[in-house]
């Protein structure tokens, strides 16, 4: 089937044959390296811990949104980046794990009593944790062996957890800021839109 945007995206689709998916991992490491460079340059302000925690969480969200955009991009634009989706998803999981680790180690500093109280009592942390716990098994099964072992049907059903985990991650962001700030709301809107676009056959 020839897509209306084919003249634009066919060359891109062809080019992807020459770009291996590991290149996405290399590219995906750039924000992390940038963050470390800023840290060493003293550019993260008076409280670098909060800056790192926040930035890692935002990068994780960007990759989650990127992963969610692959299917609508193929369906609606004829842009086929499906071979990179696994790398994008794994990168999202890595950033989110680093975000959580920053909270646990550098921010709350492994005070387990306070950590468990926060997870149970603070809705934005509860929601963030639920999202993380959904993303975790997806990261662990993002390999060919798991796909074979689970079978494509089970594997696909498991990975539908993204449709819950990603909006929850955005809700976590909306709730964490004081008052109604535009940036997290825009991300939540984008995610809802991407989910609705999948309904279009």
């Amino acid at each position: 089937m020839q897509h209306v945007f084919a003249p634009i995206f066919n060359p891109v689709n062809q080019a992807t044959r020459r770009v291996p998916s590991w290149a996405v991992y290399a590219l995906g490491a750039v924000p992390f390296i940038w963050l470390v460079a800023q840290l060493f340059a003293g550019q993260l302000g008076v409280d670098p811990v909060k800056a790192i925690e926040h930035q890692l969480g935002e990068y994780g969200l960007y990759f989650l949104v990127g992963g969610l955009a692959i299917t609508p991009a193929r369906k609606l634009l004829g842009l086929n980046l499906i071979k990179y989706r696994r790398a994008i998803g794994v990168l999202a999981a890595l950033y989110i794990t680093a975000h959580l680790a920053t909270w646990l180690v550098l921010d709350i500093q492994l005070r387990w009593g306070e950590i468990s109280a926060d997870i149970l009592k603070r809705p934005y942390i509860t929601i963030g944790m639920v999202s993380f716990l959904m993303i975790l098994p997806l990261a662990f099964t993002s390999n060919n062996l798991s796909l074979r072992k689970l079978g494509p049907l089970k594997w696909r059903n498991l990975h539908k957890l993204t449709y819950i985990a990603v909006p929850l991650a955005a809700v976590h962001f909306v709730m964490i800021v004081k008052g109604w700030q535009p940036e997290p709301l825009i991300w939540l809107g984008v995610i809802v839109a991407l989910l609705l676009l999948r309904r279009i056959k």
């Binding site: 409280d47 670098p48 811990v49 109280a117 926060d118 603070r122």
Partner: peptide
């Protein structure tokens, strides 16, 4: 007495950089 958004049991002392102690 907890704040609904934050536990008030501990605090992070600003100024210690990456390893500001709680």
């Amino acid at each position: 007495v907890d704040h609904p958004r934050w536990s008030q049991a501990s605090e992070r002392k600003i100024g210690g950089g990456l390893f500001s102690s709680r």
